[in-house]
C-alpha cells in the first residue's frame, strides 16, 4: 500500500524515471557535443590559433580582421540576397504549387512526385546539373540561340554581378518541392466545412485562401520558415559544386569562408570567428522570434 501511495505522489525528479534515463544519452550528446563544442569554438575565436588550437588570447583581433576582409563582406551580402529571395520565392512558389494541387486535379500524384523529386538529389548533383544548364555553350543560352534568337544572352554564372541569382535558381529548384509538400499537408488539414461555409457566404476562391486558409495554416508556415532559414544559413555544397565561389570571389558564402580559413588557410582563429558570427546572426534572429512564438503558452 505504501508503495502505491508513493507512486501517486512522486517527487518531481523521479517522475517518468525510465523516460528520463532513456533520454540521458541524448541530453549528454546535446550538452557535450552541441553546447560544449559551440562554447569551445567561441572561446578559441578570441585566440590566434593557426593550424592547431592554442590558447593565446588576442582579444577581438580576429573579428576586426574578419570585418575588414572583403571576401567576408561579399559573403554576407550574398547570403543576404540569397536568403531574402530564397525565403520569399520558396514560400510563394511552394504555396502556389500546393494550392494548385489542392484543387483536386487529375494526376496529382504524378505532379507531386515531379515537384518533390529534386529534393531527393544532393546539392552537389543539383549544383553540377545547373552548372551545365546555365553554361552558355551547353545550356539554356545555346538552346535559345539554336532556335534562332541569335543575340540571346543568358550567362549568369560567369557574371560577378548576377552569379548569386544563378545559384538562387538552383536552390529554388531543389527546395520548393519539399515546402510544397508541407503546404499541401497543411491545406489538407483544413476542414472541408470551412470551404463550404466560405462558398455559402459567396467568398471567392483566392480570397478564401488569402483571408481564411493562410491564417489557419500558421503552424505550417512556421515549420516551412524554419526549414528554409536553416537551409539558407548553411548553404555551402551548392556553391562549391556550382561555382566554387567564382568568378573570382563573387559567389562566396559565409560557410565557405569558415571552411577555407580553418583548413586551407590553416587559421583556426579566423575560421572560428567567422563561424561565431554565423551563430550570432542565427541567435539574433531566432531567439526573439522563438520567444514570441513559443514563449508563455504551451502547445499553442
Amino acid at each position: 500500500m505504501s508503495s502505491s501511495s508513493k507512486a501517486r505522489r512522486p517527487a518531481g525528479l523521479f517522475r517518468n524515471l525510465s523516460a528520463k534515463i532513456a533520454s540521458i544519452p541524448m541530453v549528454l550528446t546535446a550538452l557535450v557535443v552541441f553546447v560544449g563544442g559551440t562554447a569551445w569554438t567561441v572561446v578559441y575565436s578570441f585566440t590566434s590559433s593557426k593550424l592547431l588550437p592554442k590558447a593565446n588570447f588576442v582579444g577581438l583581433d580576429q573579428y576586426e580582421r574578419l570585418w575588414s576582409t572583403r571576401r567576408w563582406l561579399i559573403s554576407i551580402e550574398n547570403l543576404a540576397v540569397y536568403g531574402f529571395f530564397s525565403m520569399i520565392f520558396t514560400l510563394l512558389i511552394g504555396f502556389t504549387l500546393a494550392a494548385l494541387l489542392d484543387r483536386k486535379i487529375r494526376g496529382e500524384d504524378v505532379f507531386r512526385t515531379i515537384f518533390l523529386y529534386p529534393f531527393a538529389l544532393s546539392f552537389v548533383v543539383t549544383g553540377l546539373a545547373w552548372q551545365w544548364i546555365l553554361n552558355p555553350d551547353l545550356g539554356v543560352q545555346n538552346v535559345v540561340r539554336s532556335m534562332g534568337w541569335e543575340s540571346f544572352t543568358f550567362n549568369p554564372l560567369n557574371d560577378p554581378d548576377i552569379v548569386i541569382y544563378g545559384i538562387l535558381i538552383a536552390g529554388l529548384w531543389q527546395g520548393t518541392g519539399l515546402i510544397m509538400c508541407i503546404m499541401l499537408a497543411g491545406l489538407r488539414g483544413i476542414d472541408q466545412e470551412i470551404w463550404k461555409a466560405a462558398r455559402v457566404d459567396g467568398i471567392g476562391t483566392v480570397k478564401t485562401y488569402v483571408r481564411i486558409v493562410i491564417p489557419m495554416m500558421r503552424p505550417v508556415f512556421i515549420t516551412a520558415l524554419v526549414l528554409i532559414a536553416s537551409g539558407i544559413i548553411k548553404i555551402y555544397d551548392l556553391v562549391v559544386a556550382q561555382t566554387n565561389g567564382g568568378p573570382g570571389i563573387a559567389s562566396e558564402v559565409p560557410a565557405k569562408y569558415v571552411i577555407n580559413y580553418m583548413f586551407r588557410a590553416q587559421n583556426l582563429g579566423q575560421g572560428f570567428a567567422a563561424s561565431t558570427m554565423m551563430l550570432l546572426s542565427v541567435v539574433i534572429i531566432l531567439i526573439p522570434w522563438a520567444y514570441l512564438e513559443f514563449g508563455g503558452k504551451k502547445r499553442g
Binding site: 572583403r70 586551407r264 588557410a265 587559421n267 579566423q270
Partner: peptide, 10 residues
C-alpha cells in the same frame, strides 16, 4: 604562411 597566401589568393 598558408593564411597570408590565402588572403593574397582571395
Amino acid at each position: 604562411t598558408a593564411d597570408t597566401q590565402t588572403q593574397i589568393e582571395d
